[in-house]
Computed example of a mutant assay.
Amino acid sequence: MKTKNILIYSGLLLGGLLFGYLLFGGGSSEPQSMEEHIAETHTNAEGNVVYTCSMHPQVREDEPGDCPICGMELIPANELGEDNASTQNPNAVKISQAAMALADIQTTEVRKEIPVQETRLPGKVVVNQNLVSNITAHFPGRVRELYVDFTGDYVRKGQRLASIYSPELITAQRELLETARFKEQNPRLYESARRKLMLWEFPEETIDQIERSGEVMQELDFFAPVSGYVSDISISREDHISEGMVMYRIADLSKVWIEFEAYETVIGRLSKGDEVAFQVSSLGGQTFKGEVNFIEPFLNADSRTVKVRVTTENPNTRMKPGMFAEGVISSGSNQTERMLIPRSAVMW
């Protein structure tokens, strides 16, 4: 019995020694340094957990909180899987894949080029004043009939606009008929009578008709000298008109102006020939291109702006005068090549 108890106690002692060896003596025989311990556990010398920012790893705090730079919540440094603080470059930024996805971080190459300044300007579509025609009366008279009587209507060159009674027209017709009888003897007088009616913008077909009929027409039709859209009508039926009076205004919209408003702070960087990329708000984000062909020489004292103009083609008259537009003007620079990065990449 005594021998049996000795064996039991001996077994327990050996088991305790083996357990102690495995628990305390089975690792590396070399003691771990404080720096290795900090690097492995991401704690400081006092054993406290170090907290850092996923966007700014140079931030190291002893307790949780918010990043003093961006305000993001600090997390334990070991969650970043980064290098230890002793080897971390203070100017380097290292973040986790999850933080990159959350921040939607994108990269681009740094390139060396001559800087090009881009200026955004608001604007609108306006009528090209070089393609506007005023249809005026060349003689006094009375309007008997209007064949085009509302604005916005499209007229073609040679289309009948109105019928006019005028004593001067009657006199001019009589002169034509009288000189036509003696055109063999006095051709210059005959040509002068015809030219008078032609200068009043009557077509040759109308003049030939007067000659063939040999009769004076009491009313003569007035025809459009150009094609375009009627933007203004200044006469009504039975109105009396005088020589030089504007009766119609017709605008050709095959080319239009885009007029931008440039504030005085950016005028110095703009010049004729600058490239412009612009969009018209009503045309679904389509981008058009042109170049600056006019910069107004006078500053508007109320708005502190000048008008910057672009002339552009307008197929199918898609751009309507009055539509809003927004343009980006690219201005060249006299500077030498420089290292360029996107403006959005500059954080402070």
Rank of each mutant, 00 (worst) to 15 (best):
V226Y: 00
L189W: 02
H138L: 04
Q286A: 09
K196L: 11
E291W: 13
K124A: 09
N78A: 05
I6Q: 05
M100Y: 08
N186L: 12
G322L: 05
Y21H: 10
G71S: 09
K4S: 06
D232F: 02
V246T: 13
Q173P: 08
S330D: 04
M319S: 04
P31F: 14
R343A: 13
Y165Q: 10
I250V: 15
E118M: 12
G285V: 05
G268T: 10
I235P: 03
E296C: 09
V292H: 11
A162F: 06
S54W: 13
M198A: 11
L80I: 08
S254N: 15
Q185E: 14
L74W: 10
E211D: 06
A92N: 06
V226E: 01
K289Y: 15
F139C: 00
T136F: 01
F223H: 12
Y147W: 08
N89G: 06
G290Q: 10
E109K: 14
R160S: 06
G273F: 10
N300T: 01
F278A: 03
G141R: 03
W348M: 07
L17N: 01
K124H: 12
L18A: 15
N89V: 05
P76S: 09
E191V: 09
T179N: 09
Y263K: 13
G141C: 13
G11Q: 04
A101S: 09
V59H: 08
E275H: 10
E238H: 03
